[in-house]
Design a protein around this nucleic acid. Structure first.
Lengths: 163, 163
DNA sequence: ATGTATGCAAACCATTTGCAATGAC
DNA sequence: GTCATTGCAAATGGTTTGCATACAT
């Protein structure tokens, strides 16, 4: 069995337990949604999940997607990101409680990374009257591509001015 | 002069320079908006800014607020947060490039804090082909109030079950 | 005088809601 | 059989857009 299949199985089990515990029904739609989500690497929004499922010949309504996304958020099988464009992004989050991102403020490119030092430093932060569960870190800056483009544009401008 | 007034003056100057540089008009609305924003401690959304200005007998349309919020974001005088409820939150950001938050996943309470260790650790992270400008950290967990309430609820449940 | 900025209302669009039909239990 | 869940369509509400008017330059 592949490691991604193993994760999928574990996630399915977690979801089943959650549904049992909360006396919710184990509908085929629910497991189809979970299965599709756990096939996606990286971020996705509702629209792309909707299309992705349709492409795989499984039709679910947007309402059902929203409904179940909330359940999956509640049992921590996915996490939600809001990068600022008012379209919520989600991603699978099996045993991943830390999420670091670089975001280019020019082109909006998002890159994820792991860093044990950052993780340790943040998790060792003790806050009075607050129990830490997880964190999300967003580092903003300019990616190499945009920087190169900007420099080229400025050089062009200087040349123009000189003429 | 109070320190908050000094900050306000500096922000005003930064904004003036930005407007000049980009050949934008220095309208009274623009400076009124900046002034109000720099009187707010903590987060605000467009609706509350709109009301706050109205209360102070300064009417500006929502469209103008959105327009100018974008300018202020562009010249880094404010920053934008998306905490997940699809209502963008903003806050003044004069010389503040780091923003740490605790967020209670139950009641949504948000608390800001500073931490030099976290700041150093994150800023020392070098990413290939990426220039760091600023970061935002969101630590999720449960605040004391919600935890107490939950424990009380569970205790009640246990008592019920026993009976 | 020129053209940008404002205010208002309409449009937009992600998300939520209401409700009849379906199907898990 | 009961009632949670689904699908569809309509409603909601934050944000954007279009356009006539006002006003900074």
């Amino acid at each position: 069995m592949e490691s991604s299949d193993k994760t999928k199985e574990s996630a399915k089990q977690t979801f089943t337990e959650y549904l049992n515990k909360n006396k919710l029904r184990k509908t085929p739609e629910r497991f189809a949604i979970l299965d599709r989500i756990y096939s996606i690497n990286g971020h996705f929004d509702i629209e792309s999940l909707y299309c992705y499922m349709k492409e795989n010949n499984y039709h679910v309504s947007k309402a059902t997607l929203y409904n179940n996304i909330n359940l999956l958020l509640d049992c921590k099988l996915i996490i939600k990101h809001n990068f600022g464009d008012n379209i919520s992004q989600y991603e699978k989050s099996y045993n991943t409680h830390t999420h670091n991102h670089f975001i280019c403020t020019r082109c909006g490119a998002i890159k994820e990374f792991s860093d044990i030092n950052i993780k340790r430093t943040i998790q060792s932060k003790r806050i009075k009257n607050f129990t830490q569960l997880s964190y999300s870190l967003y580092i903003y800056g300019v990616c190499n591509k945009c920087q190169t483009e900007q420099e080229a544009a400025e050089q062009k401008k200087c040349v123009k001015t000189r003429i």
